[in-house]
């Protein structure tokens, strides 16, 4: 079997595992959709003054895509890799001829599938239910999703390499990801001059959200690529790759 065919099989396996696991299917997939239906309806017709009076949901849809993609990439990979490492599944896999990069490609490919479905679904729901405009720069949106998705997959692998065992995986992952999502304006619009927002500027979540908003561009004033945001995402992605390459382990940590 060619390596490309192996990658496809790994993606299919990861997809099966993802959708059959209620925790991942619910938290990573159903949560963002549910948030859109609840908060989108509560704020229907509202506008955000600090952002040129754009409709609330024109902001909220890209913000929820941020939440969804980070959940499907970083949170999901961090938890599932840690749990599999700690239970010996990865160790067994390392004893087979499967090349490590094919395993990683399967994880990333599966996260990409979930991210793509979520992004499409949230965008379509925003347009159909709340009447937001279609993304103004679709190619830019795709680029931002790819760069952001890859970076958060790398960060997920990196984070898993810092978590000691399966019991700690959900707690540590959520403790890292959720506060950063909160202060990055993923759940409600954030005043860019606030202290929280200044802290969030150091982390990739905020820049992913702003780059997605730039691609949706509800005001029609995005001059070109949101280059600064993309650079921050790339740098964080490289940090993730570096940590993952140096620290990734196939075996449970010995106490």
């Amino acid at each position: 079997m060619s390596d490309a065919a192996l990658v496809l099989r790994q993606v299919r396996f990861e997809q099966r595992t993802f959708w059959r696991n209620p925790a991942s299917a619910f938290f990573a997939f159903a949560f963002p959709v549910m948030f859109l239906l609840i908060f989108g309806s509560l704020n229907r017709g509202a506008r955000i003054e600090s952002m040129g009076n754009i409709p609330y949901n024109a902001y909220y849809v890209p913000a929820l895509i941020t939440f969804g993609v980070i959940g499907a990439c970083m949170t999901n990979i961090s938890m599932s890799v840690t749990i599999r490492r700690d239970s010996g599944v990865l160790k067994r896999l390392r004893g087979t001829p499967l090349p490590p990069w094919v395993f990683m490609a399967g994880l990333i490919g599966s996260s990409a599938v979930v991210s793509a479905i979520l992004s499409g679904l949230l965008t379509a729901a925003g347009m159909l239910i709340y009447g937001i405009a279609a993304p103004r720069h679709p190619a830019m949106l795709l680029l931002v999703l790819v760069v952001g998705g890859m970076s958060f997959c790398a960060l997920g692998l990196a984070l898993s390499s810092l978590i000691p065992n399966a019991e700690a995986a959900p707690a540590v992952t959520n403790a890292v990801v959720l506060p950063l999502l909160f202060i990055s304006g993923t759940f409600y619009p954030l005043d860019p001059s606030s202290v929280l927002s200044r802290i969030a500027d150091w982390f990739p979540m905020r820049h992913f959200a702003l780059a997605l908003l730039a691609a949706f561009d509800p005001q029609g004033n995005q001059p070109g690529l949101p280059a600064a945001h993309l650079w921050v995402l790339l740098v964080w992605g490289l940090v993730g790759v570096t940590i993952a390459v140096r620290r990734f382990q196939w075996e449970p940590w010995r106490s």
Partner: peptide, 23 residues
Amino acid sequence: LQECAMPRALSVRELLELYAGYY
């Protein structure tokens, strides 16, 4: 190996076929 954890959501056939593809 000594440990015996495996992907619990898969069926026996699915897991065996996945592993068969590695060889």
